[in-house]
Design a binder for these strands. Structure first.
Lengths: 144, 144
DNA sequence: CAGCATCCAGAGCGATACTG
DNA sequence: CAGTATCGCTCTGGATGCTG
């Protein structure tokens, strides 16, 4: 399976080519295979968001990321980074040290996405208490 | 299991109470159980994002949503809506028609989140072509 | 240090059938 | 119309051990 196949495999009826051929057509976010859904599939991988956030500040090495992202396993971090590089959200540089060290840095494209995701993080910081409070009320009402 | 349990179950070491007790401490988005992660778990459910986007425009009924969100199953939509209501992102109103009809509407809180998610959608619209192009190059290089 | 390979338990989700 | 209930499969993701 090619990389592009894996990108669109969840949208069997979508047709990316037609989107590129008719750029004037407004993309429908509720259609399968649309840009929004492709991105949501990426964001759905929460490690990607956290990883991008860290790398954005400054380039990082593999184990540094592993340490700083609480709870991520080696497998998931590896998988996430491997996807983000072909996405051109980050770059991967092997440094000729012994033993080898690998540095991950953000690309300009990745930086623009990170900026957008800042908004999400700010919302979380400012409003999550409301959600948690609502859940408490909900639980109390359920138990009564 | 209570609703709050389900919210935090993926962050066994996180402690929401301590976060509320020490609001001065800057929340670490890379710690388990932090607001950002809680929100990411919700956004990870892509149907939630799409559903919120639709309801935000105007209140909708169940089957209307089912029709308009391409590819969603009844089960997933039902599950998504059932979660969003205790989150207080949407309201659920049963109308006394026959047969019964149920209308879902956005709350003020839900509207603020939808606004943030607009940014995500705009990024997707403006930059997904870059990502797809990068994948094409990557595939070609791999096959050569 | 920076990964890859393997195994496998459990969550997620679709499909299907049924209900008030 | 607006769901609930159940089955069964897939696929994610954690744990573990190994490599250049």
């Amino acid at each position: 399976m090619t990389a592009i196949d894996s990108l669109v495999k969840k949208a069997p009826s979508g047709n990316l080519v037609s989107q590129r051929e008719r750029p004037a057509a407004p993309p429908d976010p509720y259609a399968a295979g649309c840009p929004t859904r492709l991105l949501l599939d990426r964001i759905g991988d929460k490690w990607m968001v956290l990883t991008l956030g860290l790398i954005r500040d400054r380039p990082r090495r593999f184990n540094a990321l592993r340490r700083d992202i609480q709870g991520v396993t080696q497998k998931m971090l590896s998988q996430t980074l491997k996807q983000m590089e072909p996405d051109t959200l980050i770059t991967r540089t092997v440094l000729p040290t012994t033993p080898v060290s690998v540095e991950y840095a953000v690309t300009p494209l990745g930086r623009t996405l990170a900026t957008v995701l800042d908004g999400v993080q700010l919302w979380a910081r400012d409003h999550i208490a409301d959600v948690l409070g609502a859940w408490r009320l909900y639980d109390r009402r359920r138990l009564r």
